[in-house]
Simulated scan of single mutants.
Amino acid sequence: MLNQNLEASKKLIPYSISFEQNEAEMSLTEHLEEVRQRAFWSLSLLLITIISCVLTVKNIVKLLQEPATGIKFLQLAPGEYFFASLKVAVYTGFFISSPFIIYQIILFILPGMTRGERKTLLPVVVGSVILFIFGLACGYFFLAPAALNFFINYGSDVVEPFWSFEQYFEFILVLLFSTGLAFQLPVIQVVLGSLKIFSSRLMFSVWRYVILGSTIIGAILTPSVDPVTQIFMSSIIMVLYFGGAGLVYLIERSQSDTQTA
Results as ranks from 00 to 15, higher is better:
residue 24 A to C: 01
residue 151 F to Y: 12
residue 151 F to G: 03
residue 216 I to H: 08
residue 31 H to I: 10
residue 16 S to M: 05
residue 243 G to L: 12
residue 194 S to K: 15
residue 23 E to Q: 05
residue 215 T to K: 06
residue 77 A to V: 08
residue 248 V to C: 00
residue 182 A to R: 00
residue 40 F to I: 11
residue 99 P to K: 00
residue 20 E to A: 15
residue 70 G to I: 01
residue 20 E to Y: 11
residue 248 V to D: 01
residue 84 A to N: 11
residue 118 R to P: 03
residue 59 N to L: 03
residue 77 A to E: 11
residue 5 N to K: 10
residue 42 S to L: 03
residue 152 I to H: 12
residue 19 F to D: 10
residue 150 F to D: 02
residue 150 F to S: 04
residue 46 L to R: 07
residue 65 Q to C: 07
residue 69 T to C: 07
residue 20 E to I: 15
residue 90 V to C: 01
residue 72 K to T: 11
residue 142 F to W: 00
residue 245 A to C: 00
residue 208 R to K: 15
residue 126 V to M: 11
residue 46 L to S: 10
residue 27 S to L: 08
residue 22 N to G: 10
residue 237 I to N: 14
residue 142 F to H: 00
residue 106 I to S: 05
residue 90 V to A: 06
residue 7 E to Q: 08
residue 167 Q to S: 14
residue 237 I to C: 12
residue 91 Y to R: 06
residue 44 S to P: 01
residue 14 P to H: 03
residue 157 D to R: 10
residue 160 E to R: 13
residue 250 L to N: 04
residue 129 V to M: 15
residue 244 G to L: 09
residue 59 N to S: 08
residue 172 I to N: 12
residue 158 V to G: 07
residue 155 G to F: 04
residue 130 I to T: 14
residue 214 S to W: 05
residue 199 S to M: 02
residue 149 N to I: 02
residue 212 L to G: 07
residue 232 F to A: 11
residue 68 A to I: 02
residue 196 K to G: 06
residue 195 L to F: 00
residue 102 I to M: 15
residue 175 L to A: 13
residue 196 K to F: 00
residue 42 S to P: 01
residue 175 L to Y: 08
residue 149 N to H: 13
residue 92 T to C: 14
residue 187 V to W: 06
residue 105 I to K: 00
residue 239 V to I: 15
residue 136 L to D: 03
residue 27 S to C: 09
residue 140 Y to D: 13
residue 128 S to K: 03
residue 164 S to W: 04
residue 260 T to L: 14
residue 151 F to L: 14
residue 159 V to L: 14
residue 204 F to Y: 15
residue 157 D to H: 08
residue 155 G to P: 13
residue 3 N to I: 07
residue 197 I to A: 09
residue 6 L to S: 03
residue 120 T to S: 09
residue 155 G to I: 11
residue 214 S to Q: 04
residue 26 M to R: 14
residue 90 V to K: 00
